[in-house]
Every structure is written in structure tokens, then in C-alpha cells.
Design a protein around this nucleic acid. Sequence first.
DNA 1: ATAGAAGTTCGATCTCTGTCAAATAAGACA
DNA 2: TGTCTTATTTGACAGAGATCGAACTTCTAT
Lengths: 109, 109
Amino acid sequence: MGHATLETFGGVDLGEIDGMTVLQALSDPVRLEIVRQLAGCTGSTDMPCGQIEVPVTKSTASHHFKILYLAGVLAKREQGTSKYMRLRRDELDERFPGLLDSVLRATAV
Amino acid sequence: MGHATLETFGGVDLGEIDGMTVLQALSDPVRLEIVRQLAGCTGSTDMPCGQIEVPVTKSTASHHFKILYLAGVLAKREQGTSKYMRLRRDELDERFPGLLDSVLRATAV
DNA sequence: ATAGAAGTTCGATCTCTGTCAAATAAGACA
DNA sequence: TGTCTTATTTGACAGAGATCGAACTTCTAT
């Protein structure tokens, strides 16, 4: 059905996530690269998984997406065969103030 | 020789350390507990290794101290048979602004 | 000199996790 | 229906890292 897909983003409940989970999710070079590319998107823009360039195979990338999703770092939106990912900037910053920014700054290229 | 030991703290050059190293050093529950106990010390106070309580054996604790030291998180001072550890708060915050604080906040008990 | 205290290092497990290839699931489209 | 695209899942594997006990080093003290 060609229905609306009205911003139907799915994400885990950040209230249930503890800091160590997020910290460990962010402590991997590949995942950090994913986050960085999504952070590069303006505001609430999202990207299809396949459009994010990482130096691993598709299955490995999918594995990293799952970890980031379960850690509450990413939100998912499905459209057709693609799944669009979005960085949960604001929510993350409310729950863990300053964490994402300082991590991105510390590991900046 | 009973000489002065005038604040002879040893630590790696933080300029040579990259963010991922620090991030991974902080991404372990035991090490984070070490850091937290050292952060509890007022200002530049230090503690002997053995006085920091962690749920692992002495050798494992020593391993974690080494990782934290090599990541530039801790500085070491030797006195007698003891080795005093100090958290490099200010230096760390200058090199990686906000990182330590946000990590400690995010993983607070 | 002998013993004790504080840490480190070594060697051996054991678990975790990042990785890939192949198989699978689901949607789009001819 | 069949095929292509997109992404996930499964199974296997390898490397990294956390852990422990035992041996070793160094300083202190008796």
C-alpha cells in the first residue's frame, strides 16, 4: 500500500538504556564512522543503510547497525526495501548530556 | 636514598594519544570504577593502587591500571613499595574537552 | 639476612566480539 | 511469477581482551 509513512521512526526506550551500553556502542571505529556520517546529515535527515560507506561487508555493517540501534543511538524508518537510519541526537543528549558531542570531538579525524 | 620525591608524577604524553584509545580505556566497568574512585579524591589527591577497591585479583587490577596509564588517563607516582595513582583531570579535559565528565555522568551509579 | 608488603609480569584459559560467506526474508517491478 | 534490490540472520572462525594463579622484583622492617 502506498500509504503515508508519516515519520514512523522506531527506536528503543532510552530510559531503559544504561551509559555503559551506549559507551561500548560508541567504542568501535566502524560504528563511530557510521555515527559520524549520520551526524553529518543536516538536522533530522536520515540515510539508507547502504548509502553509509564503511570498510566492511554488508552483513558486518548490519551487525553494527543493530548494536547502535539497540543502544538507542540510532532510530530506524522503513520504506520499501530500504531502511533509513537517523541519529538520535537530541534524545541522546537529554539522557546523556554532552556524551555524544565529546566523543565525536575526541575521535574527530 | 631518602630524597624528596617532589611531585614526581609520571605520565604518557597526551598529545600522542588519540581519542579512541582513551574511549576504549574508559569502556570497561572495572576501569571506570577505578577512575570513579580516583575522581572522588579531592583535587590532586592520589591513592595507592591497593587502596582502590575492585572486584578482581591484584594482577588483573594491575593490568587495568596499565591500560589507563598508557591511555593517558592516570599518572603514577612511586613511593616506597607503593605506587600512587592520580587522575589526570585537567590535562585530559584540555585535550578531550568534556569527555571524562560526560562519561562519568553517563555511567554514574 | 630474613621475612613481609606492594605491584608487575608471565603463561594459560576463557569469553567476547568483529568479521565474512552463504542462506534467508521482504519489498519493488517487469 | 520471477527477478532484482536491500537488508537481516545464521554459522563458523579468528583475534582481542579480561581473568586468574604463580613466579618475580623491589622496597621496608625486624
